[in-house]
């Protein structure tokens, strides 16, 4: 029994705390390109100082936050109606609808991103259709723009938005909506005053599940985005591979984590509050 309780802690210790301590140790060290591994351990904050003084890094942070925020909001706007529709569908149809949401995961993530490249290219399916249908003769190219990055992130992470939203919407007591209607609420007012506030835990969970990976996303901006969309994931890549500066790359990773701890803590607090409420 004691072992069972210890298991999650063991897991956390081995697969999160230890690697984290390691990354932190490297981040505090100095780049030593001539050794294996290329790190001189020590206690210094100059890697972090560089991250916060160089405007290029700051710009990358801001771009990442901006892209992640907009993508999360779009995913929420798209995912909420989807989750709502599934939660209100006939119970025997819900498993099928949920499976449709999860179905894309059966294909490799990379292949799906490549498929978007094929769709959004200059001569991709989208433009072919636009030209063929005569809607636009010179439609321009979405691939290689920030639009494509947003699209890719929203597409890739939409299921992570839909599933927690569905979970909260599905377990909602329908008699609450009847009570609201009974007390004079139009359907939309009932949605705003009852459904929406009660689904807030799902909204927060979904947003975190989209926002967190979106901030550090590397593959999608690399493949779908243009060069001007400089996100922090690319900076990390450059530091690690192009500059072979592991300490600085680790510092970026630590900052990324620190940045995400904020929203997670917020979520925890909100969860705790809703627990004491019910």
């Amino acid at each position: 029994m004691r072992f069972v309780i210890a298991l999650p802690f063991l897991w956390l210790g081995v697969f999160f705390l230890l690697p984290f301590a390691l990354v932190l140790a490297i981040a505090l060290g100095t780049n030593a390109p001539d050794s294996v591994p290329p790190v001189e351990l020590g206690i210094g904050l100059k890697n972090f100082a560089l991250l916060f003084t160089d405007d290029l890094y700051l710009a990358a942070w801001l771009t990442s936050l901006r892209v992640a925020t907009t993508s999360t909001l779009v995913a929420l706007l798209l995912g909420y109606p989807m989750a709502y529709a599934i939660a209100r569908a006939a119970p025997e149809r819900r498993p099928l609808l949920l499976m449709l949401v999860v179905l894309p995961f059966w294909t490799s993530f990379l292949i799906r991103v490549y498929a978007w490249m094929g769709l959004l290219d200059e001569n991709g399916l989208l433009n072919q259709f636009l030209r063929w249908s005569g809607i636009a003769t010179d439609p321009g190219t979405i691939l290689g723009t920030e639009w494509a990055v947003h699209l890719g992130i929203v597409y890739a992470y939409l299921p992570f938005m839909v599933l927690p939203l569905y979970a909260t919407l599905e377990k909602m007591d329908m008699s609450l909506l009847e009570a609201a209607a009974d007390l004079g609420a139009r359907p939309f007012a009932a949605f705003l005053t009852i459904t929406l506030p009660l689904s807030l835990p799902g909204v927060v969970a979904g947003c975190l599940l989209v926002f967190i990976p979106a901030v550090g996303e590397f593959v999608i901006p690399d493949l779908l985005g243009g060069t001007e969309t400089l996100m922090i994931g690319k900076v990390l890549w450059d530091e690690f591979f192009t500059n072979a500066d592991w300490p600085l790359a680790s510092a970026v990773a630590i900052c990324l984590l620190a940045l995400l701890v904020g929203p997670i803590a917020l979520f925890q607090r909100q969860q705790a509050r809703s627990l004491e409420r019910h």
Partner: peptide, 9 residues
């Protein structure tokens, strides 16, 4: 309502 359907929030 039988369950009272009070709004928990």
């Amino acid at each position: 309502f039988q369950s009272y359907a009070l709004f928990p929030h």
